[in-house]
Computed example of a mutant assay.
Amino acid sequence: MFSVRLALRFRALKAGEHLLPLPADLPGQRVWDLALSKRPLEVYEASGNALARFALEEGEVLEVRFSLRPEPLAHDPPWREALLREPPEAWPGILAHRGHRVERALGFLLSGRPHTWFLVDGLPLDPVLFQALKEDPAHLLPLGVAPRPRVYLGGHEGKRLLLMRAPWPGEEVPMWEGLRSLDPDPLPPARALALGALGLSALGLPTGPWPYLPYLLLLALRQGKALKDLFPTAPLRALEAPLFHAFALSVTLDPRPELGLGFLALFFWNRLRPSSGVPPESPEGA
């Protein structure tokens, strides 16, 4: 398990009172050290949500900082197999028609992207990521995970923040605008150094592999386990990254065009036929 220090941000478009959800302990996440940039008028709990009301001026920015320990959830609900025979966009309606309690779950992926999924009798259901992973098994590789699509029928990958449960169907509810990490991230500067070395090498000023290796090491630490998990289910998709980095390293030493051509061929093959990276016998490719 890991923990991260995060910040949520909200800018008031008009003066007045604004009601916002606060991060709280929920299944799949533990929250502590919560600090608000402004004192709320009131804090209360309603329908399983921690809510705070703020008086804000037009253009005023509100921020909440907190520590989060997310965890993956894995359940095997009785409705999973039946849903696999239906289109994902129809899942919430099917379950509601069968008498299940269906709610919207509003929050963020830890990449900072807002994300909405569903809770069915309290269990996660994420048709969007199910479909995204069917089309591209490496869709969540930047988050360091490569879950199988069926995980999202009753669970999730453990790289998200749930902020609010809302009725489904229902009206739009006020929400925080952005999520960012407060922990230092060495990957962007390492990436810039690596790309700079590639650029110089391509211009005929070989730098050797040393400027590229820190970036490669950080990527391996962040995505290595996910790549290993990806190989059994989507070997062609998993080969893309190693092939690209092999070509990049060759550019800094002794350029090998065949590696670059191989990467491009594999890249376009996987994009034109996303399911080609999944073995036919795998249930994820069915």
Rank of each mutant, 00 (worst) to 15 (best):
L125C: 08
L36C: 10
L141D: 04
V64E: 07
P124G: 11
A105Y: 04
L110Q: 05
R98S: 03
S37K: 03
D126P: 06
A90P: 12
E89R: 00
A55N: 02
A74T: 09
P137N: 04
P70A: 05
R53Y: 13
F66M: 08
P72W: 02
E89N: 00
I94A: 07
E57Q: 13
A105D: 02
F108R: 14
L129V: 03
L34F: 08
F108A: 14
H75L: 03
F130E: 02
L123Q: 12
G93A: 12
Y44M: 01
P114T: 03
P137G: 06
A52I: 08
E60W: 11
H115Y: 08
V128Q: 11
E58L: 15
K134V: 03
L129M: 10
V31W: 11
V61Y: 06
K134W: 00
K134T: 00
L68A: 13
V102G: 05
R104M: 00
R80H: 00
A46T: 15
K38I: 10
L41S: 15
D33A: 15
S37V: 03
F66K: 02
D121E: 10
P87E: 12
A50R: 15
L34E: 09
L73G: 01
S67M: 08
V64H: 04
L106D: 01
D33W: 11
A50M: 14
E135K: 15
A50K: 08
H139D: 13
T116N: 10
E45P: 01
E58D: 15
P88F: 08
R104P: 02
H115I: 13
A50W: 04
F54L: 06
D136A: 07
R53D: 13
F54Y: 15
L119N: 00
G122E: 10
E86W: 06
G112M: 14
L140F: 01
A35Y: 02
G99I: 01
R85Q: 14
H139N: 06
P78V: 15
P88K: 05
R85T: 09
A105W: 02
A52G: 02
G59F: 12
V64Q: 09
W91S: 13
H139V: 09
L140G: 04
G59I: 13
E103I: 07
P127N: 14
A50Y: 11
A55D: 08
L56N: 09
P124Y: 10
A82L: 09
P92C: 00
P137D: 07
L51R: 02
P114Y: 10
R39M: 12
E86I: 05
W91P: 11
V102W: 07
R113S: 11
R80S: 02
R53V: 09
K134N: 04
H100Q: 00
L109E: 08
E86S: 03
G122C: 10
K134Q: 03
A90R: 13
E86L: 09
L140I: 00
T116W: 10
E71D: 08
E103F: 08
R98P: 00
G99T: 01
A82H: 04
F108M: 14
D33T: 15
D76R: 09
S111Q: 07
L110I: 12
P127Y: 15
P70D: 14
L133Q: 09
N49S: 05
L83D: 04
V64L: 01
P114G: 09
H115T: 15
R65M: 05
W117A: 00
R104L: 00
V102N: 06
R85N: 10
G112W: 12
F118G: 04
L41C: 10
L106F: 04
G59P: 09
